[in-house]
Write a protein that binds this DNA or RNA. Structure first.
Lengths: 341, 341
DNA sequence: CGCCGACCTGTGACCGGTCACAGGCTACGG
DNA sequence: CCGTAGCCTGTGACCGGTCACAGGTCGGCG
C-alpha cells in the first residue's frame, strides 16, 4: 500500500514527461508502455516501468479522454419513479455488479437519475454532451423513449429486459421469462397445488407481459382468468391485488406473484384475512431480491442472476461502443425453494 | 427539447472555436461568456449566446477539467458490507439526494464500492489519482480508516455521522441523535409505556453509541441494563436481539430499536412469540427508511432528513474543496407516529 | 551490395478548453 | 492635452495525454 513516493501529497502529480525524463526515453515510448507495451524493446520497457514505480505516476483521465475522445465511463440511468427504487433492492444489486465490472476495466460509473420530466431533459442534455461512452438503461418501462432519443443522438445504450418495442441494434440482456415462469408453475403443481393465481406486473414491462403469457400457457386447461390480478411490482400493489382476489371469491391454493415485493404484500393481506402461508395458500415470488429471504415465511422465488445481468450489460454495451452490432443475451434463472410453498 | 441543430448527430461536436467563429469574436470572449459573462460587452455577449444556441455547443468536460485541474465530480464511497446495502434503503435515499445536489451544479457523481480489502486498495489508488475533487464517505463505521488515508493524500472528504474519532477539519453531517432519542422515549411514555427496552446498534457507530447513551440518560431511574440488547442495524440482528430479550424473562411493554430494520426483525419475533404489536409491546424504530411504512403494523419511527443530509454533505464537501475549513452540521429530525406504538 | 520489411524510437501536432498578458478604446480628472 | 483607470477583446501558452509520421537500426534476401 504505502510504497515510497518521491513527492509529498501537495506536490503536483508527475506527468508522462516526468516519467520519460526519469526513464531517459521519450514521451512516446512511455505512452506505448502504458498502452500495452507493444513495439517497445524489453530494455526500454523495464526502464519505463521502473520510472513509473519510482515517480508514483498515474495517468490523468481527463487528458487521456480529451486526446482519445473516449470518456472511459458509462452512465447508469435509473428512470423509475422513486418509490420503486426503495421497494426494490434489485437496483442496488445491478448497480454493484455494473460498478465492479467497470472498475475491473478501469472505467467509472456515473449515476444518473431521471424520474421527472425536467430531470429527463437535463439528463439527455448531459448524455448528448458526450460525457459518457454509453448508457446502461435500467428501467425497462420508461426506457423506450430513451432508446429513441439516444440512438438519434448516436449514443450507444444497453437495456435490461427486452424493451416493449425491441429497437433494432440495441443490445439487451434478459432472463428466460418463459422457462422461469413455467418452472415455478410446475413446482407449485408438484406441491399439490392446482388452483394457482397470478399477480402480474404492468403490461408495459417484459416482466409483466411475458410472465403472464407463460403462466397462461403453462396453466393450459387449468387457466382461469378470474385468478389474475395485476399490479406495478410494488409491495402495496401486491397487497391490493390480493385483496381483489379474495374479494372475488374464487377458490385458489397458490399464488405466483411477478415480483417478491408483490408477494410480500400478498402475504400480509393473506395473514390479515386469517389465511396461513403456505398451509392455506402457497405463495411464490420472482426476483429473489433479498427481501425474499427475510419474509415470514421465507419466500420461494425465482432467482435472477443480477450480477451476471449487469456484467453482461456492461459487456454488450462496451461492444456496441466499439462499433459492434448490438447483440441480445438471455440468461438462465434458478428456482429457490423456501418455506412459503 | 428538439431545437434546430446545425449538425447531424454524427458530425463532430462544435468546439469553442466554432462558436467564436460563428459569433465573430475570439475564443477568449466565448470562454468569458460561458464562465459568468463578466467583463464582456452586452453586444458581444448576445452574439456569443446566439452562436451557442445556433451551433448547439456544449462544453467538453474533459478539456475543461484538464485546463482547470478540477474534476468536477465527487465520489460517493460506500464501504459497508454488501448485505446492509440491501437491508437499508437509506443508501438509495442518500445517493439520490447527492446525485441531485450535484446535477444542479453540473457536476457528476462517481459511485465507488469498497467492501473488501482488495477493493479498498483499488479505490484508494483511484482516489489518489485525482479523478474526483472530493469524497462523500457514506459508512460511518469503516470510514475512519479512509479519513486518515484521504487526508494524508490531501483529498477532501465529508462524512455522515460523527466519526468515532472525530478527525480535525473533516466536515461532517449528523442528526441530533440525543434529542431524537429522547423525543421517542417521551413519546413512548406518553403512550403509557414505562418498561422500555432498547435494541442498540454497534458501539463503533454514532447511531449505536449515541442513541444508547441518550436512551440510558433519558430513562434515568427507569433504566434497566437487562433491557438492552445490541445488534448490527440489520433485520436479522433485530430478530435475534428480541429473542434474547424474551428469553431474559424481564418484563417490558415497549421496544425502541436503533434502526427500522431491527424493529422489523423484532416485530417478526414478537409475532412468532404470540405477542401483539402494539397491544402487548409497542415498537419504535429509527430512520423512517421506507421499510417503516410498509411494515405490519406500520412503524412509528424517527424520520431522518435524508435529502437534507446528502445535500449538506455535498455543500460542506464543496466548501472544503474550495479550501474552506471543514464545518460540521447537525440536522433536526421528526418523529413519525404510525400504529406500532 | 542494395533493398525491403520488421522493429523500435523520437518529434510535432492536436484534443478543447482556461488563463495571463498585452493591448485598444473610452472617459475622466488634473 | 495627456496620463490613467476601467472596461473589453484577442493571442499565445499551457493542461497531460495520444497518435501519425519520420526516421533509424538490423537482418535477410535477391
Amino acid at each position: 500500500m504505502s510504497m515510497l513516493m518521491e513527492q509529498d501529497s501537495r506536490a503536483p502529480r508527475p506527468t508522462i514527461r516526468d516519467v520519460a525524463a526519469a526513464a531517459g526515453v521519450s514521451r512516446g515510448t512511455v505512452s506505448r508502455v502504458i498502452n500495452g507495451g507493444h513495439w517497445v524493446s524489453p530494455g526500454a520497457r523495464g526502464l519505463v516501468e521502473a520510472a513509473i514505480e519510482r515517480t508514483g505516476y498515474t495517468a490523468n483521465h481527463h487528458a487521456r479522454s480529451l486526446a482519445t475522445g473516449r470518456a472511459n465511463s458509462l452512465a447508469f440511468l435509473v428512470t423509475e419513479p422513486q418509490h420503486l427504487l426503495f421497494d426494490d433492492p434489485t437496483y442496488a444489486l445491478l448497480l454493484r455488479g455494473a460498478a465492479e465490472a467497470l472498475a475491473e476495466r478501469n472505467m467509472t460509473l456515473v449515476l444518473l437519475m431521471a424520474g421527472t420530466d425536467r430531470e429527463k431533459e437535463t439528463t439527455l442534455e448531459y448524455l448528448r454532451a458526450g460525457h459518457v461512452d454509453g448508457v446502461l438503461l435500467i428501467s425497462s418501462r420508461a426506457s423506450d423513449v430513451y432508446i429513441g432519443e439516444l440512438s438519434a443522438a448516436g449514443i450507444p445504450a444497453a437495456c435490461s429486459g427486452l424493451p416493449a418495442a425491441p429497437a433494432a441494434g440495441v443490445p439487451s440482456v434478459s432472463i428466460d421469462e418463459d422457462a422461469s415462469t413455467r418452472r415455478m408453475i410446475r413446482h407449485l403443481r408438484a406441491r399439490g397445488r392446482h388452483r394457482i393465481a397470478h399477480l402480474s406486473g404492468p403490461e408495459d414491462t417484459p416482466g409483466g407481459r411475458l410472465r403472464l403469457a407463460a403462466y397462461r400457457d403453462e396453466m393450459g386447461a387449468e387457466f382461469d382468468g378470474r385468478l389474475v390480478e395485476s399490479g406495478d411490482f410494488g409491495r402495496a400493489s401486491g397487497a391490493a391485488a390480493m385483496e381483489r382476489l379474495l374479494a372475488g371469491g374464487v377458490r385458489f391454493d397458490a399464488v405466483f406473484a411477478a415480483s417478491d415485493a408483490m408477494a410480500a404484500g400478498a402475504i400480509a393481506t393473506l395473514r390479515r384475512a386469517g389465511l396461513g402461508v403456505p398451509d392455506d395458500v402457497a405463495v411464490a415470488g420472482f426476483d429473489d431480491s433479498g427481501l425474499a429471504e427475510s419474509l415470514d415465511p421465507p419466500l420461494t422465488t425465482i432467482r435472477q442472476p443480477w450480477e451476471a445481468i449487469s456484467r453482461a450489460m456492461v459487456g454488450l454495451l462496451l461492444e456496441a461502443v466499439d462499433g459492434a452490432e448490438g447483440r441480445s443475451v438471455t440468461l438462465p434463472t434458478t428456482l429457490v425453494q423456501r418455506s412459503s410453498t
